[in-house]
Simulated assay, not measured.
Amino acid sequence: MKLVMAIIKPFKLEEVREALTTLGVTGMTVTEAKGFGRQKGQTEIYRGAEYAVNFLPKVKLEAVVSDDQAASVVEAIQNTGATGRIGDGKIFVLDVAQAVRIRTGETDDAAL
């Protein structure tokens, strides 16, 4: 099993969710996040005063998928989450040692 973690722009979330649902991803966790990468924030003007926004709004999406689904999930996130501009985000893939469904006690792939 793999944990696919993606940091994407908030307005791309629904499009990415639809793509993953089409692939058969049955569950995911979404968290609002703030951060920066190469874009290093941006400068905003509010009521005539200029100030720096160091942390930009992002969305962190996490989904645990079977090993054979991982590559297609990463590809779907990359294709639907991209705008072609700096700040599109990152995707991380980590190994998951064990998963347990609390209600039934099912483990690993059956728990997904």
Rank of each mutant, 00 (worst) to 15 (best):
A49T: 15
T21S: 09
V64Y: 06
M28T: 07
T31R: 11
T83V: 11
E62P: 04
K58N: 12
K60A: 13
G81T: 07
L13E: 13
T29S: 15
D109H: 00
A63D: 07
D68W: 07
G27K: 07
A111C: 06
G89T: 00
A33Q: 04
Q78V: 08
G27S: 09
T29V: 13
P10K: 06
D95H: 03
G41L: 12
T43V: 13
A99E: 00
I102E: 00
T29L: 09
R85A: 10
P57S: 13
R38F: 04
D109R: 02
Q98I: 00
K40P: 02
Y46W: 14
A19T: 09
T107L: 03
K60H: 11
E106Y: 02
A97Y: 01
A99V: 14
V30Y: 07
L20F: 03
V53P: 13
A110F: 01
A76S: 10
E106A: 12
G84H: 08
E75G: 03
G105W: 00
I7S: 05
L13F: 09
R103N: 06
V65G: 10
Q78F: 10
E62M: 13
E50M: 12
E75L: 07
M28A: 15
M1C: 03
G35Q: 03
A76H: 04
A82C: 11
Y46F: 14
L3M: 13
V53N: 14
E44K: 07
A110V: 02
D108V: 02
A110E: 08
I8H: 12
G27M: 11
R38M: 05
P10C: 02
V4Y: 02
G87C: 08
S72H: 09
L23E: 10
K58D: 08
L23S: 13
F11D: 11
T104L: 04
K58I: 09
G89V: 05
G41E: 07
S66I: 09
L3N: 05
L56A: 05
E75I: 01
L13S: 03
E14C: 04
R101V: 04
E50P: 04
L112G: 01
A49V: 15
A63I: 01
Q39L: 13
M1Q: 02
E15H: 09
I86Y: 03
I77L: 06
K60N: 10
G27Y: 12
L56C: 09
M5C: 01
R103S: 11
F92Q: 03
T83P: 10
A33H: 06
R101D: 04
E14D: 09
L112M: 08
L112Y: 01
A71L: 09
Q42I: 12
A63S: 10
V100F: 00
V64F: 01
R17V: 15
A52Y: 15
N79T: 14
N54K: 14
F92Y: 12
I91T: 08
E62Q: 08
R85N: 13
T107D: 00
N54Y: 14
I8A: 04
K90S: 12
M5Y: 04
T21D: 12
V73K: 10
D95M: 00
R47V: 05
E106W: 00
M1W: 02
V65N: 09
L56D: 05
R17K: 15
R103W: 01
D67E: 15
Q78A: 12
I8T: 03
A19Y: 11
